[in-house]
């Protein structure tokens, strides 16, 4: 890979300062970025590793009952420590990549990268999580802005992700058998004031909410409530793993399965 400067600050403040340089890039767990650097698809002048910043690691609960996950928390830790409080989220984290990848990859890295087939964006959008950065808070509805695009500014660091905890939730992931990424993934979250459904892997615009299904499920939280509802294939991803029509069809199937598993 290309040469670069490497820094490993121990505080958010030092990391933000290091990222102030033009051409600096934050490095989370590196499970996407390091392979990307090897392929020479990225060429930052400086890498700022976030792995030494203790204050952005760990899982806790705030006074309002939100599950607060530090941006530098690995998938393995979320799978373990969110299991009692938010099993739908823990189960999602436990299915990302493989055990070794889950020991490095972080929730902040996944959300900052916003890969259109990543799992975490579906949970964050379905639960309407709040992304807390070094400088502001951003609600999920405003955060995701298309494939690999988010509301984050250059050099902005995800310090924490704050999840409202649903009454019931489930994530269904239909894996692309070679990469094990989601060919389509659907996260359903039922709250006292309504149901939210977020879809990853399917759309050329990245993660999105299926509002028709949300309205139907908010009235009647059963798989039958989805009968007759379909997603148009327009704007869905088409590649050798599946056509736009196939992905659109899977959204309906997986949403029914998620509701069925959550009830």
């Amino acid at each position: 890979m290309y040469d670069f400067e490497f820094e490993r600050p121990a505080t958010i403040a030092d990391a933000v300062a290091a990222l102030g340089d033009e051409d600096a890039q934050a490095l989370g767990g590196g499970q996407t970025l390091i392979p990307t650097l090897k392929q020479r698809l990225a060429m930052p002048g400086k890498l700022v590793s976030l792995t030494a910043i203790r204050e952005i690691r760990g899982v806790c609960e705030d006074d309002e009952g939100h599950l607060c996950i530090g941006g530098g928390t690995t998938h393995a830790v979320v799978a373990r420590e969110a299991a009692d409080r938010f099993p739908g989220l823990a189960s999602l984290a436990a299915r990302i990549g493989d055990p070794a990848v889950r020991n490095r990859g972080t929730i902040g890295g996944s959300l900052a990268n916003n890969d259109p087939s990543a799992c975490y964006p579906a949970a964050a959008l379905a639960a309407n999580a709040t992304v807390v950065t070094d400088r502001r808070t951003i609600v999920a509805d405003d955060y995701f802005q298309g494939m690999f695009t988010t509301a984050l500014d250059d050099g902005e660091i995800i310090a924490e992700v704050r999840f409202p905890v649903p009454e019931a939730s489930n994530y269904q992931k239909f894996i692309q058998p070679a990469s094990r990424f989601a060919l389509v993934g659907v996260f359903v979250a039922k709250f006292a004031d309504g149901v939210r459904v977020a879809v990853t892997g399917a759309s050329e615009s990245g993660v999105f909410r299926w509002s028709k299904a949300e309205a139907a499920l908010s009235r009647n939280f059963t798989p039958d409530a989805l009968s007759g509802l379909t997603v148009p294939a327009d704007g869905m991803i088409g590649d050798l793993h599946g056509s736009p029509e196939y992905r659109a069809h899977l959204i309906g199937v997986l949403t029914k399965r998620a509701v069925s598993a959550a009830t």
Binding site: F6, P35, K38, S49, A76, P99, V101
Partner: peptide, 23 residues
């Protein structure tokens, strides 16, 4: 060398990690 195959797994602080995908 792309974190797919696992031939490079070592333990870091007791947990398995792919040594090709960590500096």
């Amino acid at each position: 060398d792309t974190s797919q195959c696992g031939a490079c797994v070592v333990h870091i602080d007791g947990a398995p990690v792919k040594a090709c995908s960590i500096f």
